[in-house]
């Protein structure tokens, strides 16, 4: 592991912001810390940056323990949600600031600034001040400032959350391309699962100061292991073991051993097929047309399902249906009820 975080704990009084958290980042990897607000993801990022002290645990970069190293000696780059450009400096001065501190020659700094302004596609703003730029432009400059020093690790703290939807989409792509081309190991904090799915090589999903699950975007979406992850990574249908045994026994095939209450079946809406059937146990309650797909709200004896299909299928509201699920599309998650 390039960056290795072991057993990190952070408490505020009796509150555990981080409870024995261990994560890692490989040398060219883009890792997203994903979770709801208050889950501890930002605290974790700040401890890695050296901006907050932990109560216990280790942060190692290539084996070197960073715990007692102040933030400014870690050689990391950081981008905040609030842009945080120095308001009294021009764009060029902002980008060159880290290099200036390191005593790099003026001419070299200048060259680097010019090249970075090209990289972020803002070649003409060097002499402007931050307040003369739009939010998206400011965040690009903040990104350039962070990577100007060839950081050992790039930390992004909700960098897209303050931007409007269109700019967010553009910048998302740019951050991804930039990270891939430079190969800088990157750790990004976000609460937006879509952002995490598109950007990350690996997602670490957190809740209540703990890591719920770590894996590729596909893993987290298609094979969640906890109920929290299943819910957080989009819409999920959760079906009790008892009902599965009765009506969908095929799905029991890959169920881990355990009491009925311990695991619960999780199926994504697009992995359920509904078929009109007068003897079906389920009923279509509502249909919403969402453009490229249709969403059906279906009730069945043990509860309610959300089903999504591409294109039109021949059912109408109030109609009796049966539903089918392929065993490989079902993942069993820890129910959390135990």
């Amino acid at each position: 592991m390039y960056l290795n975080v072991q057993n990190l704990t952070k408490t505020y009084g009796n509150f555990y912001a981080l409870d024995n958290v261990s994560i890692g980042v490989e040398s060219h990897e883009f890792v997203c810390l994903l979770g709801p607000s208050g889950c501890g993801k930002t605290t974790l990022l700040r401890i890695i940056a050296g901006l907050t002290q932990s109560n216990g645990g280790e942060v190692r970069l290539l084996g070197e323990n960073l715990v007692n190293l102040p933030a400014r000696q870690r050689g990391f780059g950081i981008v905040f949600q609030s842009y945080s450009l120095f308001p009294n400096m021009t764009v060029a001065e902002n980008i060159g600031y880290g290099l200036k501190i390191r005593g790099v020659l003026k001419a070299d700094i200048q060259a680097r600034i010019t090249s970075l302004l090209g990289t972020i596609k803002l070649p003409d703003v060097a002499e402007r001040y931050p307040w003369q730029l739009s939010g998206g432009q400011q965040q690009r400059v903040a990104l350039a400032r962070a990577i100007a020093v060839d950081p050992r690790l790039l930390l992004l703290d909700e960098p897209l959350s303050a931007l409007d939807a269109k700019v967010r989409g553009e910048l998302r792509t740019e951050i991804r391309d930039l990270q891939r081309s430079l190969g800088i190991p990157t750790l990004m904090v976000t609460h937006d699962q879509e952002e995490a799915l598109t950007l990350a090589d690996r997602i670490i999903c957190m809740n209540h100061g703990r890591v719920e699950q770590s894996g590729t975007p596909e893993d987290l979406y298609l094979r969640p292991t906890t109920r929290f992850v299943a819910d957080f990574m989009g819409v999920s249908n959760l079906i009790e073991t008892r009902y599965v045994r009765e009506c969908l026994p095929a799905l029991l095939e890959n169920r881990p051993a355990g009491e009925d209450d311990a695991y619960i079946a999780c199926i994504r809406p697009e992995q359920i097929t509904i078929i009109a059937d007068e003897n079906g146990k389920a009923t279509v309650r509502a249909i919403s047309f969402l453009g490229n797909l249709n969403r059906f709200e279906v009730t069945y004896p043990a509860g309610r399902l959300i089903v999504e299909t591409h294109g039109h299928i021949n059912v109408s509201e109030g109609q009796r249906v049966r539903f089918e699920i392929r065993p490989e599309d079902c993942s069993w998650v820890v129910s959390g009820a135990v």
Binding site: G50, L51, A71, R72, R74, F80, S82, Y97, I101, R145
Partner: peptide, 19 residues
Amino acid sequence: ALEEAASCLGSSMTRIAID
């Protein structure tokens, strides 16, 4: 956040105070 950004870029407290 501004002080933290400067700190991550390598500023000492004296420099942060001035810059």
